[in-house]
């Protein structure tokens, strides 16, 4: 599903003429198989979020290749990557990243709108997702009117509404209490089992990492263990 080959990335700090190179990822190579849940763990600043951002296409790697399915996404233009993200990827963020001026229903409906789905199909699929995450009675609530757990469930519903084969999750339980965290992890496992969705979960929490079939550990930008499936 995901193939990362010899991935190197550094950030350039400072102004022109006085730039400092800050290496973040060094020679990272690993694979994630279809239907797998892979946890990427590491301390804060180890480069795990950068890795996720590179796979997501939010930033472009300095060196190396990323293949998702059979597509070499590192060659994609911004526009092409946007289309690819819409069709093949779902995202779960630590801070949920819901649009505050939209209701739960509208937030979940957004990917369907961007894809150009018909209004009737959008309504049906959005209601299905709301039902799946147990928020049908909160559909007209704005994010500010929902608890952290509910917001994360809306975020998951939005990530899943287009039924992407791959979900990238960045610290998905970071803003949740332990009870909600447990609920969410169960939900992720259920989605993986029932729908065969591949998950790449970035976390520093060992509890969360444990739901993965495999764990990749990154330290100081280098892959320490878990590269092989």
């Amino acid at each position: 599903m995901i193939t990362v080959q010899k991935l190197n990335h550094h950030f350039e700090l400072g102004k022109k003429g006085n730039k400092t190179i800050l290496p973040v990822l060094k020679d990272i190579s690993f694979q994630v198989e279809k239907g797998e849940i892979v946890s990427v763990v590491g301390k804060s600043g180890s480069g795990k979020s950068t890795l996720l951002n590179l796979i997501s296409g939010f930033i472009h790697p300095t060196e190396g290749e990323i293949l998702i399915g059979d597509q070499r996404v590192t060659d994609f233009s911004e526009t092409k990557f946007a289309d690819f993200r819409l069709k093949h990827m779902g995202f779960i963020f630590q801070s949920f990243q819901l649009i505050p001026s939209m209701t739960a229903f509208q937030n979940i409906e957004l990917p369907l709108i961007l894809k150009g789905e018909s209004e009737s199909s959008r309504e049906q699929r959005t209601l299905e997702m709301l039902n799946k995450v147990g928020l049908e009675s909160f559909k007209d609530h704005y994010p500010s009117e929902l608890s952290g757990g509910q917001q994360q469930r809306v975020s998951i519903a939005r990530a899943l509404v287009l039924e992407p084969p791959l979900i990238l999750a960045d610290e998905p339980t970071g803003s949740l209490d332990s009870e909600t965290e447990a609920e969410l992890l169960t939900f992720i496992k259920q989605l993986n089992t029932e729908l065969g969705v591949t998950f790449l979960i970035i976390t520093h929490d060992e509890e969360v990492a444990r739901i993965g079939h495999r764990t990749i550990t990154i330290r100081d930008g280098q892959l320490i263990e878990g590269a092989d499936a």
Binding site: S56, F58, E78, T79, A82, D83, F84, R85, L86, K87, M89, F91, Q97, L98, I99, S101, L110, P111, L114, K115, R158, A159
Partner: peptide, 15 residues
Amino acid sequence: PDIGIMKAIGANPKT
């Protein structure tokens, strides 16, 4: 921030 979210989930820059 809304534009960022939309771009993250796959909104085309042209759109």
